[in-house]
Design a protein around this nucleic acid. Structure first.
Lengths: 332, 332
DNA sequence: CTGAAAGCGCTAACAA
DNA sequence: TTGTTAGCGCTTTCAG
């Protein structure tokens, strides 16, 4: 059933039908509108967004490229995006990359083919700079979420500050030997967190021992291994700053497996705050990110770009917040 | 840049270009294909899915309507859907209803306008039967997820069985007075869970006391209130079967607030298993649903419908699994 | 094997 | 105020 069928049945032109389905207020009598609307309702006609998009060059659809919706870090972010998109009359195509760069490229290529009006992307660790540059040079508006991307519209959190807060918390508790279980060195986010860790130590006049800064990934097994080697090689260490909560979780397991207690023997701070469940007897101290708000901000920024509004700030930084819970205490 | 531009530059017709971008093997020489492909690559041409969809009547897009991605129950389900969709060359439009029927209807209407090839929907509590019938009578394939929908393609979990398992577990631990904190009575899922609870009691020769079956919602505060009233009016009750984990969480808080211990004084079983965090000292005993697999199954079923394959079973039921953890024990 | 041309369902000038 | 008509970018039949 097409606009033609409706026009025929209502004895009007397709232009008139088009006017009513698009709520054009000018150039149509209320009488006419009601007449046509009635026919539309009777026939159960639904206009085709495809056909409309062909001529208007708008799809009212945006793409959201994320690593993995199963990672508890993302749902709130997605929700923030979805809410503002919905409020602007847009729908969101969910693209899960599983941290696979090929999938990411594939998804973005298809998003182009689908002529989405814009894309929000939380790039994988280890950004391919040239690739991103190529993306942004294109015709379709992009905003980067979570990970910093230079010279690009982007919303992220102040990772340096978060790590600084976390480490300072440990220092204030009285810890003097604090290890840093870092993530992938290709991740700017991670690098910033390491910087924050160093900054807090320096500020407190504590020495920065490179051997206490372990490289790893964002996965739990990396945290486990790193913690294990710290426990073995540096028994005087009493606190662990972890690049993210998965690392913290792995570290926790290693500490427990080695017969030590958290936080009595070893304090642990995580990052991202994704391990909190209300009513639990034990929860991690962690640096929380306002993920919902970040999602909202990214979507709002994208909407502004789509509607060619002058942008306030092409680069938006949110403040993280340290949440102190049960995995940290003063050293014995 | 359109197919015409490519055709012109390659000195061929648009039909020929169309043949190569669609990988039509017949009726084109390898030489020609390579020639055209080269021009396409040089120009960086991307075909428009919109225009293609107009003539093929296919969008390679499906809609996924869920309550709330922030509810930990959903991410895995969404992931299951996304994975099989991706493998079939489809993208998924994420529609968050926030349990608002108006939003749900609005989203589905827009999905129609966008001419998606199919829709997966996890209907809100309290299904509007007439509405659903209307949906399914339409032109676009639907499959219902999670909640049972009669006479419709649907994948769900055997809620009766899950509740039966949970209650039986309590009985086997020696509990004789078990309350049931149920959810909304408009939810068939909830009704089935209450049935499973009753079934286990009956089978064990235990009396079914209607006063011990409290009505509520799926929210934590409902669980809190229900548990409170049980604690007050029926002090001999030693175990609580909860319609879902949020209820269980609320109940837990009420029990603790009243100076009792879980599980020593009161055992609690939840449903859905969304409160588990590895490495926690305390976790709820709960009935787990294979949500990822259910998502996969729903998407597979939808793909079959879209491709008009003969369907094995238009109605698919998964088995839930009781996970025993720390919130249940024998009564003192 | 390749090309010409009709048409998918709609919008937007421009005419009437 | 309403209608006519030319596309939007592609696929697909039908000729060549």
């Amino acid at each position: 059933m097409t606009i033609k069928d409706v026009a025929k049945k209502a004895n009007v032109s397709t232009a008139t039908v088009s006017r009513v389905i698009n709520n054009k207020s000018e150039g149509i009598t209320e009488e006419m509108r009601q007449h046509v609307q009635k026919v539309i309702d009777e026939m159960g006609y639904t206009p085709s967004h495809l056909a409309r998009g062909m001529v208007t060059k708008k799809t009212y659809t945006i793409g959201l490229v994320i690593q993995d919706i199963r990672n508890p870090f993302f749902p709130k972010m997605v929700s923030g995006v979805e809410h503002v998109a919905y409020n602007h009359g847009y729908m969101v195509l969910l693209c899960n990359t599983d941290e696979d760069l090929n999938r990411e490229k594939d998804y973005i290529a298809t998003l182009r083919e689908k002529r989405v009006d814009g894309i929000i992307i939380t790039v994988s660790n280890g950004i391919d700079r040239a690739y991103i540059a190529q993306l942004t040079k294109g015709d379709i508006p992009f905003v980067f979420l979570d990970e910093i991307a230079e010279e690009v519209n982007c919303v992220c959190v102040d990772n340096t500050l978060g790590a600084y807060q976390a480490t300072k918390h440990l220092i204030q508790l009285g810890h003097k030997h604090i290890a840093c279980l870092s993530g992938p060195s290709t991740s700017i986010t991670n690098l910033n967190r390491v910087d924050g860790y160093k900054k807090a130590l320096m500020e407190a006049g504590l020495p920065i021992n490179k051997d206490l800064i372990l490289k790893g990934s964002y996965k739990a097994d990396s945290g486990y291994k790193s913690a294990e080697s710290i426990l073995k090689d540096f028994p005087h260490v009493t606190a662990l700053f972890c690049a993210n909560d998965f690392n913290a979780l792995g570290a926790y397991k290693a500490v427990v497996a080695h017969g030590k207690r958290v936080p009595e023997d070893i304090s642990i701070v995580g990052f991202d705050d994704i391990l909190d469940i209300p009513a639990n007897h034990f929860a991690f101290t962690s640096v929380s990110q306002p993920t919902y708000e970040m999602g909202q901000a990214a979507a709002t920024m994208l909407m502004d770009m789509i509607h060619k509004k002058p942008m306030n700030e092409p680069f938006m930084t949110f403040e993280p917040k340290l949440i102190v819970r049960d995995s940290t205490s003063s050293p014995l």
